[in-house]
Each structure stands twice: as C-alpha cells, then as structure tokens.
C-alpha cells in the first residue's frame, strides 16, 4: 500500500509541477520527461541486459510516425492506430533481433546501426506518406470524450508515461526475467547452464524495450504536433547511450540522473560553447568509462562508503 502511495505522490508532484511552469518551460519539461522515459527503457536493454543497440530512437520514430500516419492518412480509430503502431515496433524489433541476437558478439549493435540509418532514409524519401524531410504537421490529438487534452494536462500524460514505463521496468527487473537479463550480461555461458535461454532473453529484452520506445514516440507525436526525421536519427541514439553510461548503467537512478544531466547541460553551456556540447559529451563518456565505469551513481556509492 505504501508503495502505491509513493507512486501516487510522485505522479502528483511531477504532474503538478507542469501547472506552475510557463509555456516555454513546460515544453522543456516535457522533453526532459520524454528523455528520461527513453533512458529508462534503454537502460534496461543496455545496462541490465548488456546489449548495445542504436535503434531506440528509430523505434521512438516508428511509434510517432505510425500513429500519425494511421490516424490522419488512413483515418483509423485511435485505439487501433496505437495497437498497430505497437505491433509494427514489435515486428521490426523481432526481424532485427532474431538473426543478430542469437549469435555471440556485437551483431545487434551493427544491425541496429544499419536499421537506424535506413529509417532516416525511408523518412526522407517516403514522399507523401512520411512527408519527406519536412515531416508531417498540422494535425491534432483526437478528442477524447469531447475534450482535447492540452497544455499542462498533456504534460501530465507524459508523467503517466514515464511512471508507467518505470513501473513496468521495475517489475521486470525484480523478476526471473530481470535476473536472467543480468545473468546474460554478466556471463552468458553460466546463464545457459542455469537454464536461461540466452538468445530468447536477448530478443525479448530488445523487443520489449523497443516497444516501450515506440509507445513513448506515440506520446511525443502530440507534443509538438509535428514529426520530422532529424529527431529520430543516430545523434540522439548516441546521446541516449551516453546518458546511461554517465548516469550509471544498470540502475534506474543512473538512467534518470544521466538523462536529466545531459539534457539540461546544453541549456547552461550553449551560451559559453555554442553547439559543441556533443564534443564535450564524447570526452565525458570516454573519461567516465576510464575513471568511473559505474557512472555518477557509482561515484555517489563510492563516496558514501568511504567518506
């Protein structure tokens, strides 16, 4: 019961903040919440299951584009558009993961790199369906029970998305599945000897987290009411990986801290160094791996243990 209250409290606090913010800050806040959501699901795949993939933003994009295309070009009902979008994510995820995850080695990383690259090409060359380089715009969230969710209320929807994602991942992490994922990351051979189907665990983790990214993408589609290719590219996929590494891979808190930090730093730094913060992030990541592989959360633990 107390844990339910805690979740409820977090929801009220996070959503309540939206009503105090200006329109501009609400926008920044929404993007921050979305980044944290993505970092959480990516952390499960990379930090907990030990799989490198570069397709998280591609699935975010598949979710966003598919819901818009199904709704406004095919005029499907809202729930059906969402279900089809999720199905599409699962289908693509399985198609990539089944051939590459059953092998030892880093094939999934390369396959998802190729998928992410191809996805941007398809968006740019997709003509009227994807809107080409300009993307799709001029659509609105369908009305629900006669009202359209707007403003801070939509921020509250994103808070629900974040907490829902965290709850799902939390439960997965504390189950046989989460332990199997960690076992696969630590030592696949021993995991197999303990009865863990290594390939299946990897494929399931990839598909699940990709579907979560797709769902986040569907929510994102109505944040700016426009979707266009650059958001879903490899740059952001790298940034997401860096967030998880800097924050502390394998820990939910690490993903949250890393995402918040790397998302907010450019706002502080850009007056000083323009748009070169990505270079700073690259250096930061190399330094983190060399000096503190457990990230900021690990650093905090170390300091607390030996003050």
């Amino acid at each position: 019961m107390s844990s339910l209250l805690r979740w409820l409290g977090a929801a009220l606090l996070l959503a309540g903040a939206a009503f105090l913010l200006s329109d501009y800050h609400n926008d920044v806040y929404r993007k921050l919440l979305l980044w944290v959501t993505l970092a959480l699901s990516y952390n499960f795949l990379f930090g907990i299951c030990g799989q490198i993939a570069f397709s998280h933003f591609a699935f975010y994009g598949i979710g966003a584009y598919s819901v818009v295309i199904f709704l406004f070009q095919f005029h499907l009902p809202f729930p059906l558009a969402i279900l089809l979008g999720i199905a599409l994510c699962i289908l693509f995820a399985l198609a990539v993961a089944i051939p590459s995850a059953r092998l030892e080695g880093f094939y999934l990383a390369l396959a998802t790199l190729a998928l992410a690259q191809l996805f941007i090409v398809v968006l740019n060359e997709g003509g009227a369906v994807t809107g080409g380089p300009g993307g799709l715009a001029n659509y609105k969230l369908p009305e629900f029970l006669g009202t359209r969710i707007r403003g801070p209320w939509y921020t509250a929807v994103i808070v629900l998305l974040l907490l829902g994602t965290l709850a799902v991942l939390w439960r997965l992490d504390r189950s046989w599945f989460g332990r199997a994922c960690r076992a696969v990351r630590d030592n696949p051979e021993v995991a197999a000897a303990m009865g863990v189907d290594v390939a299946r665990t990897k494929v399931t983790a990839f598909t699940l987290t990709s579907a979560l990214a797709g769902i986040a993408g569907m929510v994102y589609a109505f944040v700016d009411n426009t979707v266009n290719p650059p958001i879903f590219g490899l740059d952001n996929a790298f940034l997401l990986l860096f967030m998880v590494i800097v924050g502390g891979a394998g820990r939910h808190a690490g993903a949250i801290i890393g995402a918040a930090l790397l998302f907010l730093v450019p706002f502080v730094l850009s007056p000083l160094i323009g748009h070169h913060h990505v270079l700073v992030f690259g250096v930061l990541v190399v330094a983190a791996i060399l000096l503190q592989p457990r990230g900021l959360v690990g650093l905090y633990d170390a300091i607390r243990r030996h003050p």
């Binding site: 030990g50 490198i52 790298f238 990986l241 070169h276 990505v278 992030f281 690259g282 990541v285 060399l290």
Partner: peptide, 21 residues
C-alpha cells in the same frame, strides 16, 4: 570487453565532433 568498445564509441563522437567543429 564491452568497456573498450564503449570507449571507442565515445571516441567516434569525439572524432566526428572535432572535425565538425
């Protein structure tokens, strides 16, 4: 083995951004 691979991914971004700058 994952650690140097990730460090090299960091280097990838360093190279690219250094050139782009």
């Amino acid at each position: 083995l994952l650690a140097p691979i990730l460090a090299l991914l960091g280097m990838l971004v360093v190279f690219r951004e250094a050139i782009s700058v």
